[in-house]
C-alpha cells in the first residue's frame, strides 16, 4: 500500500511521517512518532484519552486521519510542560491527587489547558461540561475539577500584574 507523506508542526517542532490512507492521527503520533502520551481508550471519540489540540481546536486524535495533519499545528500532552517546567494544570493535578491510574490524565491535562486558554475563570459547571468528553473511571472527577479550579486561580494570578 502506498503511503502518504505528511509534514506538520508538533509541539513547536517541524515533523514529518509516512502514513497509510486509513491511519488515524493517534496511531501516527503513537506508532510513527513515539508520542505515546496520547492514549487509546476507545478509538471512537468517546473517552478523550487521545485529546490533542490541532490548529487551536481540541480534537480526539483517534477521529482525525493522520493525512489530515498535513500543514497543521498540533499540540500533545508531551508539549504542555515548558521544558522541565510543569504547566500549572499539571502541577495542580499532582498537588490535588487528581489522578489515580493516570491513563486518562494526558487527555484531561490537554483538555483542561485548552479550557483555561479559552476561559480563564470557568465555573464548576463549565469545567464539568468542558471535560464531559473525557472519561475517568478512577477519581469520580471531584479532584480533577478542583485541580482545574486551582490551576485557573493560579493562572489568573500570574496574569494579573502585582
Amino acid at each position: 500500500m502506498s503511503k502518504i507523506h505528511v509534514t506538520t508542526t508538533i509541539n513547536g517542532d517541524e515533523s514529518e511521517f509516512l502514513c497509510t490512507p486509513g491511519e488515524t492521527l493517534l496511531d501516527a503520533l503513537r506508532n510513527r512518532l513515539g508520542l505515546t502520551g496520547s492514549k487509546e481508550g476507545c478509538g471512537s471519540g468517546d473517552c478523550g484519552a487521545c485529546t490533542v489540540v490541532m490548529d487551536g481546536q481540541m480534537v480526539c486524535s483517534c477521529l482525525v486521519l493522520a493525512a489530515e495533519a498535513q500543514g497543521t499545528t498540533i499540540d500533545t500532552v508531551e508539549g504542555v510542560a515548558e521544558g522541565s517546567e510543569l504547566h500549572p494544570v499539571q502541577q495542580k493535578f499532582l498537588e490535588r491527587g487528581a489522578l489515580q491510574c493516570g491513563f486518562c490524565t494526558p487527555g484531561f491535562i490537554v483538555a483542561s489547558k485548552a479550557l483555561l486558554d479559552h476561559n480563564p475563570d470557568p465555573s464548576e459547571t463549565e469545567i464539568r461540561y468542558w471535560l464531559a468528553g473525557n472519561l475517568c473511571r478512577c477519581t469520580g472527577y471531584d479532584k480533577i475539577v478542583r485541580a482545574v479550579q486551582d490551576a485557573a486561580a493560579e493562572l489568573r494570578q500570574e496574569r494579573t500584574p502585582a
Partner: peptide, 21 residues
C-alpha cells in the same frame, strides 16, 4: 499527610509507559 506521589510527574507529562505503549 498529602505529598506529591513519586510517579506523578511522568504521569502528568505523558511519559509513563502503560500496557499498550
Amino acid at each position: 499527610t498529602r505529598p506529591v506521589r513519586p510517579d506523578g510527574v511522568e504521569k502528568v507529562t505523558g511519559k509513563a509507559i502503560y500496557g499498550p505503549d
